[in-house]
Write a protein that binds this DNA or RNA. Structure first.
Lengths: 214, 214
DNA sequence: CCTCTTTGGATACCGCCACTATCCAAGCAT
DNA sequence: ATGCTTGGATAGTGGCGGTATCCAAAGAGG
């Protein structure tokens, strides 16, 4: 198929597809001659993947490129490949390590992982972007004077551990290595809004049960 | 305190504080004379709240204004006030209702709520932004050919229901009505990155347990 | 064969957003 | 008196995601 048909079948404007090609989010089509390039179903699928990450997942274009670069890199082992792809996802800005709240949040997060027995994650505390997000968010809460005990965080962590088991169980059902990696990345990017939506709906449900609609 | 001190104590540039004042995210200070305005600890706290929502929660400025407007509106009852504040949070773009994947995702989401017995949430299916997000994300997955059973979604939903109970339990510990609303909003905005970070860490932990670092 | 439309690629441009820099006149400090 | 600081108004900046314009080379129809 040619660019126009790719556009029609994906619902993405041709100018936007050209933009993605320029940005390296889509591999170039097979060049037939100077003014014609041929695309196939793989391009269509990739385009849908890109759109899902950008529109549903809200990722910036540069991040999508980085993530896909890692997903596509077959020279890496699965764990590294997946880790690299996930670590390219957008993160909160670097925290100010001189800030007392940040230092306290860091100690609190380390204690949390110890308490949970997450010894593997504990090894990553200095480098994992997810860990940094955790520290920044906890510090922000503390700065606003919220001082919950460690219990709440432990409970949330256990729920998320359960979610992670579901994630990985699902990834294991995929037949090929490439699909496993893609599924894991999509799981991180697209199930995020799903969990978020379910949580809000659950809040609405639970709130209505407890207090009615008043 | 004056603008310069507010800036120093919050770590936010004066020009940025002026911008927030213009945009209505901060109430104006008490005007002492033509060239001096006085701010108090409430302003500092509000400024930290705004920064947390923008930097950690990633909300656009216009959304923060909308959310705070609802939080501050004491004429509304708690449920309405909270609902209005949460519904102002940024959402995925409006789905195309003619798209077959979107229609199928809508049916699937309705079936999910029925299955879960979330009868209150079920009443909101046409209007809740969270519901719309759910539909859009599920449709995106389906469009990419992922066809899990309904079991996985049910499991995620039950986990999130548990998280929502924790959320509401924590909100109930707050003494005043105003704080309850603020806490609920912050819970939606700031605990989101916390849950996300915990999930990623749990994935790393669980992945290392299952497969090692290879 | 000769137009007339379509194609893909290069380039410039646009609108939005979160800030940021400049300017100014009114105070206050010495 | 004079020089620095203050707050407010206004204009400007940089990044980002996408769009519009232009062009020459292919094909399509007569």
């Amino acid at each position: 198929m040619r660019l126009a048909e790719l556009s029609r079948r994906s619902g993405v404007a041709t100018a936007t597809i050209k933009y993605y090609l320029r940005e390296g989010l889509l591999p170039p089509g097979r060049q037939v001659n100077a003014t014609t390039a041929e695309y196939d179903d793989e391009h269509l699928r990739r385009l849908r993947l890109v759109r899902a990450m950008i529109q549903v997942g809200g990722l910036p274009v540069a991040t999508v490129r980085e993530v896909l670069r890692n997903v596509d890199d077959e020279s890496l082992g699965r764990t590294i490949r997946l880790g690299a792809a996930l670590w390219a996802l957008p993160q909160v800005p670097e925290p100010d390590e001189d800030d007392e709240y940040v230092r306290a949040a860091r100690r609190e997060a380390e204690a949390l992982l110890d308490r949970l027995g997450w010894s593997n994650a504990r090894l990553l505390t200095t480098i994992s972007p997810a860990y940094r997000s955790l520290v920044v968010a906890v510090a922000a809460f503390r700065r606003l004077g919220y001082d919950w005990g460690s219990e709440l965080l432990v409970s949330y962590a256990e729920l998320m551990h359960e979610a992670a088991r579901l994630d990985l169980d699902f990834v294991e059902t995929r037949p090929s290595e490439a699909e496993k990696v893609e599924t894991a990345v999509l799981g991180a990017v697209l199930t995020e809004p799903i969990l978020q939506a379910l949580r809000r709906l659950a809040q609405e449900e639970e709130s209505a049960r407890r207090y009615g609609f008043e």
